[in-house]
Every structure is written in C-alpha cells, then in structure tokens.
Design a protein around this nucleic acid. Structure first.
Length: 889
RNA sequence: GGGCGGUUAGCUCAGCUGGGAGAGCAUCGGCCUUACAAGCCGAGGGUCACAGGUUCAAGCCCUGUACCGCCCACCA
C-alpha cells in the first residue's frame, strides 16, 4: 500500500495514530466534561456499569456506541450534556475471580479470613479493575471520565445504607426463613432471576409409596429421587376420587421409618402421572407452598454444599448426585422403584457458575416489591417512562404482575454488608445507617453485624441518583435527574431496569429515566449466540485493531435496528471500513481545491438560488439528509441514521456531486470556481458534523486540516436543517440530467464501446424546457460520459444505426456506424418493453377502475395519470426503435 | 402452558402513517478516467413463508396455518 501524500493527507486512511491522537486531545481539552449552564436543555445518560471484572465484548461495544452517538449528538446541539461512567463491583463474579487467584496459591478465602480477603479484592480491583474502562475509552466513549463511579465507592455505599435503612423502617425490607434458590458452589442464595433454566435430558422416577396400614400403595413421580428423604407428605387433588379415602391413612416413607400424611391441595394436577405428588417442603418451591398451606414439617436433608446431612440418615455425607444413584439402587432393590422414564425438563442453574441450583429454606433478607413495582408500572402506563421498542411493554407488565419478593441477602463477602446488628445479649435486631455502639434496648455493647452482603443489583438499582451525589441535594441531580434515556440490553430489563424504576420513583419521587431503549443481543452471522466454546466470538478489540474504531462504530450503528437480534457479519465491518476510507479520500480531493480558501469562500451559499443547478441540488440533498439524520437520532432509529449518511455521502456527494464539479474546480472563471469551492467546503463541513457522533475519529482528523482557524469538531455545533437550501426545482432538473448521463453510459457499456473511445450522442426531446436544460449542461454531460459531442434537438432524425436509450419523453441515440449488435439491441429493447408493459397494465388497471377514481385521493390519481402518460410515451418510442432496428437487421 | 419476535434478492438485512419492491455484500460485463482498485461505470437477480379476509389499493391491516428463534412459567 502506497502512502503517497496529497496535501498532507496520506492516500489511505491510517486510523491507528489518528485515534490515539484525538483521544489524547479530547482528554486534554476536557471535551467530555459535563456542562451545567442555566437555561439550557439537559441530556444525560448513566452508563450501564460493566462488571469491574469485565473485558469489552461486542455487546458492550454496541451498547456504548449507541450511547456515545446520542451523547455526542446532544453535546454538539449545545445541550447540558453528561454521560456518567463507572463499574459495578459484581459481588459473586469478582469474588470468584479473586478466589481463583487464591486457589493457585492453594488457599481458600477462609484461609485468609474475611477482612484480609476483602483487602485482596480491593487490591485486585486497583491492579486489574481498570481494564474495561480503558477499553471503553478506546472505543471513543465520550463519558465525563472525571466522574467515574464504582458501586463500592464511599458515596455510593452511603446511598446503599440510606436506602436499606429507610426501606427497613418503612417495613419494606424484612428478614425471614423462606425457600430460596441456593447455589451449592457459591454458597449463597440467588434471586429468582439469577437462576437460568436449561432444558436438560433427565429421568422421571416412578416410586411406590405404601400406605401405612399395608392396604395398598400410591405411585409418585420425581426427577430428584434424593429429595424423597425430605418428604413430609403426599399431596393429591381434593376432587380426585381415587385418593379420597386416604385422608386418615398415612404413607410409610420408603428407606426411612417415618410415616407422612396425605394432604389435599388444588395445586396437584389430577392428570399428570398418577395424580399423586410427593411433597418436599424444604427442597422445592411448590412443595414449600403446599407445605405451608397444610402445616407440613420442614425436613432439610442437604447442607450448604449440596451434601446430604444427618437428616438423610445413612445417606449423610454423600453428594446429592451420588446420593441420587444410591437411593435409586436401594429403592429398586427393595421393590419401591416402579419405572424410570427419559424426561426432558428445565433445570435451574446458577447464572454465574452454572451449578445446578438447590431450592432450600434459609434465613434471608427480602424486599417487599409489590408496592414499589406498582409505582413503576404506573409510571410506564402513564407514559412518564417510554420503552423502545414498544413490543417490550407486554413483557414488562406481565413480569411486574408476577413479581415475587426480592431476596437481597447473599452469603458472600464481597459487597455492601447489610447494615444490621444483632445484640448478643437480648437478641435485638438493630438497623442503622451509622454503626451502633450499643443496643438501644438493653444497652449491651456486644453487637455483631450481619455477615451477609447485599445483592449486587441492590446498589446498581440506585445508580442513576447515587452517582449524582444522593442523598445530598446536588446541582447534578437538579440538572441531570431524571436522566434522558437508558440504553441497555433487554436481558437485564428485570435485573436492573425495573429495579431502578422502583428505587428511583420511591426515593427521588421521580422516574430515573424518561426513555428506555432496549437493544438486541449481538449474535454471529448465523444468529448463534457468541461463545468461547463455539469459537464464534467477534472480539471488538481485534475488530478495532483490524478495521479501525470508526468502522466498527459505523457497523454497529448500521445494525442497530429496533427489535431484532443483531447478526453481525465481519464482512460488513470491512465494507464500512471502505466507507470510512471513502470519506477520507473525498476530503483529500476537496482539500486539493479548498486548501487555501479563506472565510469568504462560504459566501457562495448565502444566496443558493443564484447558484448553478448542481450546487442547488447538493444543498437541497444536504438539507434533506440533515433532517433525516436528526429525526432518526431523535427516534432512536440508529440504522436509519447510518443508512442516510452512507447513501448521501457515497452515492450523492461522492459519486455525483464531486464528479460533476470537477470541471468547475479547474475552471478559469473565478466565479465558477468559487461557487464550487464554497459549496464544496460547506457541504463537506456539514457532512463531517453529521457523521461525527458515529465516526468521531476520522471526522475530527479531517476537520482539523480544513482551512481556517477552528475549534475541535467534538464541541462544535450540529447542523440545523437549512430550509433555504431545499430546492425541488433543482432536484427535478438534476434528476433529468442524471437520466441522460446514465442513458449514455448504458449505451456505451451495452455496446462495448471502450471508455476512452470518443463518440457522439444525440438527445431528442420534444419538451423545449428540458431540451434547453440539457443543452445548458452539455459541457458537464460530455465530460462525465466522455463524449466528443452532444447534440440536443427538439425534433430530428432518429438514426437506426445507433444505440438507443429511452426514458419518458427523452430519447438518446449514440450512432454506432455499423457496430450495432442487432440481436443484443433487440433483446434489450424487448426487456425494456416488457417492463413498461407490466407497469402500464398496473396503471391502466387502476385508472380503468371507477372505484379507484372515486375513492383514492386526488393526488394519488394525478400521480397515476402522470405515470401513465410517461409510460405511454416510453412505450411508443420503444416500439419505434424496434421497428428501426428491424430495418437495420 | 403463556407471551414476544421472525419468514422480503444467492447471503445479511432495511422498508417508520397502506399508494410505483430497497441497501450492503456476492454475481456478470467493462474500466488503473489525476480523491479513492479499500475505486469507477454498466447489468442481472424477488410468487415479500402459505391460505383466506378487509380495502379503490396490502410486504405493511385482520384471521388462520407452517417452520425458526427468544423470553416467562409451580405438571412433580
């Protein structure tokens, strides 16, 4: 690759140096600093805090690109703009990382002790925890980096305590012994939504449970036979006549010496299996609820690690899965096993470590979410929060309707320790934001703080206001809360988004964000989830290395259509890299001509109507593009933003406008040249501004070498729609001229006329205005089609020995002097004729339909009539051309 | 079991309020035309999953079917 330079810009865009240069400059200039000026609109976003253990994956890249596009857009619009960055302490995930590190030294966290372990986590964070932040910076994320927050920071920890204590005192936090999801590997409770259900090929074991009086038996089915040791009842449906006589007869539980009762509960499905259900209240959520309804005993048969305990009798000490095998063998030996069926069912797994979750009763802390959830639902129903795309409303409501109390305590060490103390002497439970020194009830000083920490999502639920200084009244909160929009992945709608709504509304009395944009997951090009084991992971860091950050950002923006999974194809990234390069080269070309311009060159656009058509045309197209881009950004239609920009820059500005004005730029007529230079510079500047939010690096670089003194692009102004640039007349006229050019090129190409061969063309057009228009543009037209001459007539001979191109009332002939390939030309005409015929059939169908004429709006009818006239004209001319061709053949 | 989404060119996808089916890549042909071969010019390619319905008019609205995907859920 050559690196020849033109006017200081290398021939191909070399992103690497450019990117690091601007990252430094933006940082030095504090370009991303949050602004709080009176009388301005505010635009604020809080980043979905990535886990402090995280490394940038393509989902982060998408998420943060979208946020950055909006933030840069609003900053340029002059709003008070703030993007708050930060990371999440990610309780279990981070603890796991440090535990693994310890394990390499052959130690467990218990070997080092709680305080020392936490110290180690902080050390780890200091050394390695900045990775994802560095990577976000490299992405170009224009966060106010001086405001970086961490969910374990002092300020945020204060907010967490304050919230906990207030909720407790309002009776919305309680402690109790309930069934929870337990991870035997992480040794902690998990919230319902931290359990992932995986379809698993398992077995359904049918077990024979004899009646205590020896009069018979009932068959129950289970997927987890080891839990039978904890059975404290058998449940049947109250209306099930098969079992109505069992009310007073107990069941003799196999392998034990216990007798358990039969209870009648509507939850039991009569038609499933035998209609009898073994009830293990300590190890199954449904069974727990049945047990509560019928006062069944709790019998816990496993410990915190999933190992059978003393209640399991001779099975004590066995791991739960080993126990399962042993139990099945023993049941079979003793004749209690009826049959084993293959059975596919969902098995709950820990979302962090994929260990099979064990439902267990345990003493935990809970938030009563119903009252909080109701307020969140109201906010959404009343439109105080809008959700995009809107198909998420149903899902949101149904989840909120079925929400259960939130288990917030975790039996791990890394996190916000629950601000509750137990008095050793009187047993009083003390909940205070400041550490108490003595028991308010008995005065004892023997107080022990709860060992549990809070669910990570508890602190992230406060993120929109805790990062702005709550519980203090801060200027940040006054200026930026509620935030403008939350952009996040749909898979944490409930983990996080819903909980921020609940907490924000409860504590701030105002929603935490006005809009929620939920984007899709990024998948590979076949729609498969990216995973290391499949080997289909696209690493954004490698992508940035290979194609440049702007190319990746543009690609992600182009893919970000609402409501669809994103299938990312690496070839597309390559395609958009070419686009970045195209911008670069267009700028190089422009610079060759505007390099030495002074301010006055822009005067050309002050009176657009006075300019030649092609300049009026590009200004009009620019105005349209500005409008499209602004609208699509305002509506979060990121893909449309990308496509408007791509289409306009490449196919209108580069392919047509630059080609068209080349002769003007080399003109000896100073006015002609200055018009071209002024419009060229103006449009280029507009393009750079429009593109900047999506492709900040290349645009800033080009901007910096444009003539004149200028501030950095990042903090310049975003283009407004210039209504005075809109020009329908120019657009129509240029469309005709483009048609002529395309026609001539088509004939040349179809007839295999070498591009350098000089030939002539004749345009026949009965309409004198159009003819005049085309005649006026002869120089540009011949230049762009490489003709030696172009003649325009309102009437004249139609040569047979010529290539022909017809559109509407315009006919183009390129005399070929015996070079016409009759067969090929005939085929082309036939093809065109068929197209026109098909369209005519449609139009005539409509216009021949009285109901259409009666019902369709006048404008639509008029349009159809105009279409018919044009098609008729084209059709006639094609037939004439066919006739002439026949003479020739 | 409930809910949501998808099915449009060979591939990946747009198509916002119903009014002449689009893009990128890929394909074919021709060009190193002085910004760009990471480029330029030209061309081909569609029964908009299927079946009904509403409408003057349907890729778009309604009903149903098929297949694919995701989410939620207490049939053990």
């Amino acid at each position: 690759m050559t690196t020849a330079k033109t006017n200081g810009l290398s021939k191909a865009y070399e992103f690497s140096d450019v990117e690091s240069k601007w990252l430094d400059r933006w940082s030095e200039a504090k370009s991303f600093q949050g602004v709080m000026e009176d009388g301005k609109d505010s635009f604020s976003i809080v980043i979905p805090p990535p886990n402090v253990t995280g490394v940038l994956h393509v989902g982060h890249a998408l998420n943060n690109t979208m946020q950055d596009v909006l933030v840069r857009y609003h900053r340029m619009r002059g709003d008070n703009t703030l993007w708050v960055p930060g990371t999440d302490h990610a309780g279990i995930a981070t603890q796991n990382v440090v535990e693994r590190q310890l394990a390499t030294e052959g130690k467990s966290r218990h070997d080092v002790g709680r305080d020392a372990f936490i110290e180690k986590v902080w050390e780890w964070r200091k050394e390695k925890g900045g990775t994802i932040i560095k990577q976000l910076k490299r992405l170009g994320a224009s966060c106010d980096w001086e405001r970086e927050r961490f969910t374990m920071d002092e300020g945020l920890s204060t907010a967490v305590r304050e919230v906990f204590v207030r909720l407790y005192k309002e009776g919305l936090i309680y402690k109790g012994d309930y069934i929870v999801n337990w991870c035997p590997r992480c040794h902690t409770a998990l919230a319902d939504d931290e359990v992932e259900h995986e379809d698993t090929k398992g077995k359904l074991y049918h077990l024979r449970y004899p009646f205590a009086d020896g009069s018979g038996h009932v068959v129950v089915a289970t997927t987890r036979p080891e839990t039978m040791l904890g059975d404290t009842g058998v449940a049947v449906h109250p209306d099930d006549e098969r079992y109505s006589h069992l009310a007073d007869v107990g069941i003799k539980l196999p392998l034990t010496d216990r007798t358990i009762p039969v209870v009648f509960d509507h939850h039991v499905e009569k038609d499933f299996g035998t209609g009898a259900l073994k009830v293990t209240p300590s190890h199954d959520r449904d069974d727990y609820e049945i047990g509560m309804r019928h006062n069944l005993e709790l019998c816990k048969v496993m410990d915190d690690s999933g190992v059978m305990n003393e209640a399991a009798g001779t099975y004590a000490g066995l791991d739960r899965f080993d126990c399962r095998r042993k139990i099945v063998a023993d049941l079979e030996e003793q004749g209690f096993l009826v049959k084993i069926e293959d059975y596919d069912h969902a098995v709950g797994q820990c979302y962090r470590c994929a260990t099979v979750v064990e439902p267990t009763t345990s003493l935990q802390w809970f938030v009563s979410v119903r009252p909080l959830a109701d307020k969140a639902v109201d906010a959404v129903k009343e439109g105080r929060i809008n959700i995009y795309p809107k198909n998420w409303y149903n899902t949101f409501y149904s989840w909120m309707d079925n929400i259960r109390d939130w288990c917030i305590s975790r039996q791990i060490w890394w996190g916000h320790r629950i601000p509750a103390w137990n008095c050793d002497d009187c047993g009083e439970l003390i909940v205070e934001s400041d550490d108490p020194t003595s028991c308010p009830k008995c005065g004892s000083e023997k107080l022990a703080q709860e060992s549990d920490v809070l669910d990570t999502w508890f602190s992230s639920a406060l993120w929109p206001f805790s990062t702005m200084g709550w519980p203090e009244d801060t200027k940040e909160l006054a200026t930026f809360y509620p935030t403008s929009v939350l952009i996040t992945s749909f898979d944490i709608l409930f983990f996080w988004v819903a909980r921020m709504m609940m907490m924000g509304i409860h504590f701030m009395d105002e929603v935490p964000f006005k809009d929620v944009y939920l984007h899709a997951l990024v998948r590979d090009k076949h729609g498969k989830k990216m995973s290391k084991s499949t080997g289909n992971v696209i690493d954004p860091l490698e992508v940035m290395d290979q194609y440049g950050t702007d190319a990746m950002r543009f690609t992600l923006t182009a893919f970000a259509a609402q409501g669809r999974e994103i299938k990312l194809d690496e070839e597309r990234i390559e395609g958009y890299r070419y686009f970045i390069n195209k911008i670069w080269n267009a700028a190089r070309f422009a610079l060759m001509h505007v390099d030495d311009c002074d301010e006055s060159v822009r005067d050309a656009v002050r009176d657009p109507a006075a300019l030649p058509l092609v300049h009026r045309w590009i200004l009009s197209r620019t105005a349209t593009t500005v409008s499209e881009v602004r609208t699509s950004l305002d509506e979060y239609h990121f893909n449309e933003t990308a496509s408007s920009l791509y289409q306009f820059v490449w196919h209108e500005f580069c392919d047509w406008y630059l080609e068209w004005i080349k002769s003007d730029l080399f003109s000896k007529d100073e006015t002609v040249r200055d018009h071209a230079r002024g419009v060229l510079l103006t449009v280029l500047e507009t393009i750079l501004k429009l593109l900047h939010p999506v492709t900040p690096f290349v645009t800033e670089e080009i901007w910096s070498v444009l003539p004149g003194e200028r501030e950095m692009l990042v903090t310049s102004d975003y283009p407004e729609v210039e209504e005075s640039w809109r020009d329908e007349e120019a657009e129509n006229a240029i469309a005709i001229l483009m048609g002529v050019i395309t026609g001539i090129r088509n004939i040349r190409s179809e007839a295999d006329v070498h591009p350098s061969a000089t030939i002539e063309a004749v345009v026949l057009c009965a309409d004198p205005h159009k003819a005049e228009l085309i005649r006026n543009y002869q120089p540009a037209l011949t230049e762009m089609t490489r003709l030696s001459a172009l003649t325009v007539e309102t009437e004249g001979d139609k040569p047979a020995d010529a290539g022909v191109y017809i559109f509407g009332d315009i006919e183009i002939y390129v005399p070929l002097k015996g070079l016409v390939d009759v067969a090929r030309e005939g085929a082309k005409l036939a093809r065109e004729k068929k197209k026109v015929e098909d369209k005519l059939r449609q139009v005539n169908g409509k216009l021949g339909n009285e109901k259409f004429l009666a019902n369709a709006p006048d404008a639509v009818v008029a349009k159809e009539k105009a279409k018919k006239d044009e098609l008729d004209a084209t059709f006639t001319k094609i037939e004439e051309a066919e006739a002439r061709l026949k003479e020739l053949g």
